[in-house]
Design a protein around this nucleic acid. Structure first.
Lengths: 191, 191
DNA sequence: ACCGTTGCCTATAGAGCATAGGTAAATGTA
DNA sequence: TACATTTACCTATGCTCTATAGGCAACGGT
């Protein structure tokens, strides 16, 4: 009897989980479903991940990393409003392209895991945007929080279909919102 | 043998579910746990709710309604920045007081349920804030979306503990953010 | 006092999570 | 090349939650 091994690994399971999340939703990511996709029994997965929670944590960390890479690419070589728009679009595009991964990125991590995650890069990069706006502390922290809220809130609501009821394009409102943010930040800047 | 009936009803189950969500998280709301709390067998609950999904939908609708009532109270008799701050605080306070219910309010509803929910009241009330700012369409819709994004984004991130790492109080950033929004909206108004 | 309805019960079954322990293929070693 | 170890996946089992079917006792109207 020829037995072909499935070639499982934490990395392959994480990636497969991320892909599953995008097509079926993050809450549909189960060890059972993943086992089915690898044509393997559920118990076999426990050799590679400790638990369902660990798998979800890995997917969350993967998504945070992937998103941080995109944002880093967006912010590189830009400043001011240009940087603001590029970063904002990086978030929004990721949420629209990969709704499951974006949802995963919001999976609740324990403090130490969060501290070691790409979450800190996200905060740093949002701060980088503000270099074009001359904000002193504590205004800078306030601004980081405001921007984070808008990025996350808009992406989250749009991905949830909250903007589907009006025929005004979400893209237009997004551009308008970013204009507003730029105005607001410049009005707070102290050159 | 004296048998005391538990006195179950869809309403009591919904309320108990909402309370459970607040203390344990919305994802911990299960029919089994609810049955335990009413000292009743899980199967008994199916006489009152069709499924776990229906229960969660009821909790979501309940939370949307309760939140809408608070927002309605906040916006009544206020205009402009006053209204903006009152409504914004209504959202934030609700999310902090009732994290589980707030999470429930974001439970994905099917389109027709959503259309009949208090979700539409939320959109109307956000529009009501803008009466103090003289915005014409499509700017008004853009502004509704921006405000919704900030309210939801900030509440969501703060409730998730995203602002716990810096010692600058979330309350301060919130006031600063609302100032920014007011500035931005006024810069767009056409009196 | 009767009887239908209501409210909760038991029994049962399927799906996901998780652990224990087994076997065969792959790999290391002499 | 022969043997030992490790690796990769297996079966068996048990727990929890969801869900359905069918039963019985308490309640409420006549």
């Amino acid at each position: 009897m020829v037995v072909v091994r499935a070639g499982l690994s934490p990395e392959r399971l994480t990636l497969a989980g991320a892909e599953l999340a995008d097509v079926a939703g993050f809450d549909q990511v189960t060890l059972s479903e993943l086992a089915r996709r690898f044509d393997v029994k559920p118990a076999s997965l426990y050799a590679h991940v400790k638990s369902s929670h660990e798998l979800k944590t890995r997917i969350a960390l993967f998504a945070l990393e992937e998103l941080a890479d995109r944002v880093a690419d967006a912010v590189a070589g830009r400043a001011g409003k240009d940087a603001l728009k590029a970063v904002a679009n990086a978030y929004r595009d990721y949420a629209l392209e990969h709704p499951g991964r974006y949802e995963a990125a919001r999976y609740r991590l324990d403090p130490q895991t969060a501290a070691a995650s790409a979450g800190v890069r996200h905060a740093q990069m949002t701060r980088a945007i503000l270099r074009g706006y001359d904000l002193a502390e504590p205004d800078q922290t306030h601004a980081v929080r405001m921007l984070g809220s808008v990025f996350h809130g808009y992406a989250s609501l749009e991905a949830a279909g909250a903007f589907d009821h009006t025929d005004i394009a979400a893209q237009q409102s997004w551009a308008w919102t970013l204009d507003c943010l730029d105005t607001a930040l410049r009005s707070r800047s102290t050159p």
